[in-house]
Design a binder for these strands. Structure first.
Lengths: 344, 344
DNA sequence: GTTAGCACTCAGTTATTGCGAGTGCTAATA
DNA sequence: TATTAGCACTCGCAATAACTGAGTGCTAAC
């Protein structure tokens, strides 16, 4: 399956050209562009070979060739290299991160914005999921009458808020009591372990407290397990400028995809292979709505532990090396920034 | 400018028909549909009159007529009536609100979803802005090292969270001190009045406290004044099904509009005329991006005071009476629900 | 005032043609 | 043997022409 140098070169030029123009590439254009000093006729022969091998197809008999998914995969694996970004862009990005506010959510938004600007595709960023971490403490703030706000804080200093209406009004004393009880069983437990059985183990509760706690737990669970709020995306309209998205149905498909935050979230976190930059091309994606797209993702970490993911969605005719290079750099920046923001 | 009964009837049928089909209405079709027992020829005469008066236009010489913006305005003002929704739908909506969780944000989301489902257009809901209310107290939760979370609670029991990184680490004692100081000047002040001068009036501060407070204030301002988080919208893709949105540019325009949350927010709250249901047709909208759309909005209240707004964006060929009727009912439900949720 | 009849208009569809970019094949060439 | 020039062929696409039909305005009769 190994291609000789010339075939490889020709394939590379075709892919690069098609990524830029979205037009099928013909032998004449190619002959001028690839600087190999070979005639269109020779190139035609090579192209026919590449077509036999499954790297190229013709949209119709008398047109130029376009790369197949297999070609993109070959390009990604064997040809392209992750570049170091230009100094100027690097410092731009770096400064941008320094200027972001101190809130986690806005850092995520910023990342998404930078990603979509630098790539001209749609960016998705997943914030760290609070349920991956251990609870340090829970603070309860009385709002009014029977409503309270619970603030769950992890050891790393991440916070999540849950509003709850209880079946009875609360006063300061009750807030304090509830607070003690909840802290009693949540402290230092992993937030994904939240279960009612856990609560039952606590013995020192009055019936009243027990009742209220059992009202609270479902809310707590629901909000903590809710993935939607962790998904930040931008640059949806970027894609509309590409000719492959002049079809309204494809746009619909895309919008639906981006709105299904849970699906996005799953898709970006299932990391098979442990590569730093993961590339899924067209039908390599499990999700049906993504069959026509490519997605490149990466992750950011804190003390070597995966915190979240981020990536870019675009057409299969995606500028793979630029996106990979950008992701690679952003990853470093994000790691840096997150470790300043959170602490283990 | 007053139209006689027959012209009025004809105009009504044309508008209704065009709203349903998006096709220009011809005299023959109309003659069958309007049951006035008049021939196409007569209708042609009447239509010519209506065109002269500015209520109708022909897309091209030999086609049927479509209503002008003036016609829609006439329809809205003089013809249509706000209906009472069917019993079944009413109870459906009512039950839906009862089932929403106790959190304000999710009530807003639910409202948006119901609106877009019932109207098949795009729904926008504005949550109450915390800056319209008086602060009851501020709670500070230490997150980690130099980071704290401030929870601002209003007298009505609304809460807003602000994450802040300070220039130095905080311990419990410092949190308590800061908490006292901030409560000292925020308690019972209107949250929009937040200014640095306010802070200067407080005398009993150590230089350290003063420094930290001055670090906090800008964040506080920024988050409290931020309107973006108050805007909930759904049903963007609903509009794509209408033939007027088969054009990608119009879709882009729409998406940009919905993403500019601040603009949306302003647009929906500037209430000139104090009507319960406000209808803006096409170019009646100030915003350039909305010139091709119609928007119907309403507001919800607590103790007679305006809390927020909600509404529907659609084509100028909008089903004005259905949307108005739905908004009218939702308004009541929302008022009810909000007064259960918040308290004055 | 209303209507039937008729000539006219014009967007949209279908059919026809010509163009051009591109191919595969073959025979000549290095 | 690999490369290339030449040539006939293919086929999408754009431009043009012809056709269709829904709808109009006008006029004359009712």
């Amino acid at each position: 399956m190994e291609l000789n140098e010339r075939k490889k070169k020709i394939l590379e030029v075709i892919i690069r050209d098609y990524i830029n123009t979205a037009e099928p590439v013909g032998s004449r254009t190619l002959s001028k562009r690839c600087n190999l000093g070979i005639s269109p006729a020779t190139i035609r022969n090579e192209m026919a070979d590449l077509e036999d091998l499954g790297y190229l197809v013709q949209p119709h008999t008398s047109s130029g060739r376009i790369p197949t998914q297999k070609a993109y995969r070959y390009y990604v694996d064997e040809i392209m290299e992750i570049r170091k970004l230009e100094k100027m862009i690097r410092t731009d990005i770096h400064r941008g991160f320094l200027n972001t506010t101190t809130e986690l959510g806005s850092t995520m938004d910023h990342t998404a914005r930078v990603l979509s600007q630098l790539t001209n595709y749609t960016a998705v960023v997943l914030a760290p999921r609070v349920t991956n971490f251990n609870c340090r403490n829970v603070q309860i703030v009385s709002l009014i009458k029977n409503r309270v706000l619970m603030v769950v804080v992890t050891n790393e200093g991440m916070a999540k808020n849950i509003e709850v209406s209880l079946s009875q009004d609360v006063d300061n004393a009750l807030v304090l009591k509830l607070s003690n009880v909840i802290n009693g069983f949540l402290k230092n437990t992993n937030l994904s372990d939240l279960s009612s059985e856990l609560v039952d183990r606590i013995q020192e509760m009055t019936p009243e407290e027990s009742k209220l706690i059992h009202e609270i737990i479902p809310h707590l669970k629901k909000v903590l397990l809710d993935e939607d709020s962790e998904v930040h995306s931008t640059g949806l309209t970027n894609l509309f400028n590409y000719p492959e998205f002049s079809d309204v149905n494809k746009i619909k498909q895309l919008i639906n995809l981006v709105q299904e935050k849970q699906v996005l979230s799953e898709m970006m976190t299932n990391n098979n292979g442990n590569q730093v930059i993961r590339i899924k091309i067209g039908s390599e994606n499990d999700n049906e709505n993504l069959k026509d797209f490519s997605i490149i993702t990466s992750t950011y970490e804190l003390d070597g532990e995966m915190m979240g993911a981020f990536g870019v969605i675009g057409p299969t005719r995606m500028n793979y090396d630029n996106v990979s290079s950008v992701l690679n750099y952003i990853r470093n920046e994000l790691n840096l920034h997150i470790s300043n923001l959170l602490m283990k």
